[in-house]
Amino acid sequence: MALSGKLIGYIKISKKGDVFHDLFRHNPNEIAVISPDKIHACELVDGDRGTVGSLVHWHYSHEGKKKIDKAVIEAVNEENHMIVFNVVGGDLVDDKFKTMKVILHTEKKGDAQVITLTLEFEKLDTSVPYPTSFMDWFCHMLKDIDAHGKTE
């Protein structure tokens, strides 16, 4: 079993990519309003909100437990609506993973707008399962965001 890996999820969305990008980059606390069962808060700890090098603490619930993770914005690409979070501490990396990056970007695929979620990780040891439940959780949160504000 490999210690490092990558999981990629694709979610077809109805909103434009800049909506997701702006939310995660500049207004992540709004996600707590949109998906309160998953995200409780996102605190800026160091730097300027949305800039490369800024440190944020994500407060969330996953697998029935409240958790906190520290993440640094490692890269931003406005053209591709991409943001890369490097998880540098907290429940996710302290317990299971040596490294974890969360990469979000949006693109047009045919007539559809798609958000791509990539998890790049290195497990602490072979007994640690792949982060598929975290991927599922994150994909559901992205679907919550896409559904927010729709009147059907």
Rank of each mutant, 00 (worst) to 15 (best):
D95C: 04
D111M: 05
T99R: 07
D94F: 04
T118L: 00
D125Q: 00
D125F: 09
V102P: 12
H105T: 03
L119I: 13
T99V: 09
L92A: 10
D94W: 06
I115G: 10
E122A: 01
D94Q: 11
T118M: 04
V102I: 14
V114G: 09
L104M: 11
I115S: 12
T116R: 14
V114E: 05
V102T: 12
I103S: 02
T126Y: 14
Q113K: 05
A112M: 00
L124F: 08
H105C: 08
K108V: 12
V102D: 10
D95L: 05
K96R: 11
G110V: 10
D125I: 02
K108G: 09
T118R: 00
T118E: 14
D94R: 10
H105N: 13
F97N: 00
L117D: 05
L117S: 05
M100R: 01
K101Q: 03
E120S: 14
T116D: 06
T126V: 13
T99Q: 04
F97V: 03
I103Y: 02
L104E: 03
F97P: 06
V102H: 14
L119K: 06
V102F: 10
K108E: 08
D94E: 15
D125T: 00
G110Q: 04
L117C: 14
L124K: 15
T126Q: 06
L104T: 10
K109S: 13
E122H: 04
K101R: 09
L119F: 13
D91C: 00
L119M: 03
M100L: 15
Q113A: 06
K98Q: 12
K123L: 03
M100W: 06
K123F: 04
D95S: 08
K96G: 04
D94G: 15
K123P: 05
E122C: 03
L124N: 13
M100D: 03
K98E: 14
E107W: 07
V114M: 06
V93A: 02
F121Y: 15
V114Y: 08
V102A: 11
H105G: 02
K96N: 15
L92S: 07
L124Y: 08
L104A: 09
G110M: 01
T106L: 02
